[in-house]
């Protein structure tokens, strides 16, 4: 891909025509448990390869470990990352660790994809349906927990989703002829949706009542405990998004909430929605139909309902 059009990972065409997909990501802890943190960070790093339609196979650790962290805690972070990578069929071989005050962990990941299976942010076409494969809320839940405003039980609602690989979601997308997809992470659902709509020069109509949101996130939104990144998303991407006036402010912000290893957002040809749903069912992969792709001024319109 050229540098002009942002996408989820770097793609390099090898001599045999196969495309190499390369990406790297790391972040500070989102949960207390070291093993779970490592696993979430690894799943998040690997997700960018899936978002390009690729199959990951090799990764390197990227870590910053405080010098006073007990070695067994650091080992748990790496073990979490390595076991999540193994679940994805990825070998973690080496990497680099540096000293820093706050821990950071993630992976540099390499995968491959054949050109016909490449999924691009700009691949959505008018008439397609938009699907999302995880509920929103991980950003506000993890930051509220970190600042003592949410209980471990609330956090526990988000953890299984953050741990979940996006592998099966992309397998289901690949059961169709869809070409447009991305993963929902730091820019939030509407930020990443905007990127897709602008790249494809299409208009997305989003049904606010159909976008899945973890119920435990709603009371936190009422208290406006959003992370700084969520507010930044709204301030930047808001210029391309219009809302039905009946949609409450806190719901709008939840749609911008920065996600950790969020789901796949994909545009599926309407005639292939049954095939997509069957593939999801066979893989035990949840999904929500959240809107449609239209012709028109590139951007997003969020409607309350039909």
């Amino acid at each position: 891909m050229g540098l002009g059009s942002p996408d989820d990972a770097t793609v390099y065409r090898m001599e045999n025509g196969t495309l190499l997909v390369a990406t790297a990501d790391f972040f500070a802890p989102v949960v207390d448990d070291a093993y779970t943190y490592g696993a979430i960070a690894a799943a998040n790093s690997i997700s960018d390869v899936y978002a390009m339609g690729g199959t990951p196979f090799l990764a390197l650790n990227l870590a910053a470990i405080p010098s006073d962290m007990p070695p067994e805690i650091a080992a748990e972070i790496f073990r979490g990352g390595m076991e999540k990578a193994r679940e994805a069929g990825v070998i973690v071989a080496g990497g680099h660790t540096m000293d820093d005050k706050e821990p950071k962990y993630g992976l540099a990941v390499i995968g491959t994809v054949v050109p016909e299976r490449l999924l691009l942010k700009g691949g959505a076409r008018p008439g397609e349906r938009l699907v999302l494969t995880k509920p929103l809320g991980s950003g506000i839940i993890t930051t509220a927990y970190k600042s003592g405003q949410a209980s471990p039980e609330v956090l526990a609602q988000a953890v299984p989703w953050m741990l979940r690989l996006n592998r099966d979601a992309v397998r289901a997308v690949h059961a169709t002829s869809a070409r447009g997809a991305t993963d929902v992470t730091g820019f939030g659902f509407l930020g990443h949706a905007t990127e897709m709509a602008l790249a494809a020069r299409v208009r997305f109509r989003i049904r606010a009542d159909r976008v899945p949101i973890l119920e435990v996130a709603r009371p936190l939104a009422d208290l406006w405990l959003f992370p700084g990144g969520t507010a930044a998303n709204e301030m930047y991407f808001g210029q391309w998004v219009t809302f039905d006036p009946s949609i409450p402010e806190e719901v709008r912000m939840l749609l911008f909430d920065a996600q950790t290893n969020g789901g796949i957002l994909a545009a599926i040809p309407a005639a292939e929605m049954d095939r997509f749903a069957e593939a999801c069912q066979a893989l035990d992969q949840p999904f929500w139909e959240v809107g449609e792709v239209l012709e028109g001024e590139p951007g997003i319109e969020v409607v309350a309902r039909d």
Partner: peptide, 11 residues
């Protein structure tokens, strides 16, 4: 301070 800390203190 980064959000949501300012909101928490204000609240």
């Amino acid at each position: 301070l980064s959000c949501p800390q300012p909101v928490i203190l204000a609240r």
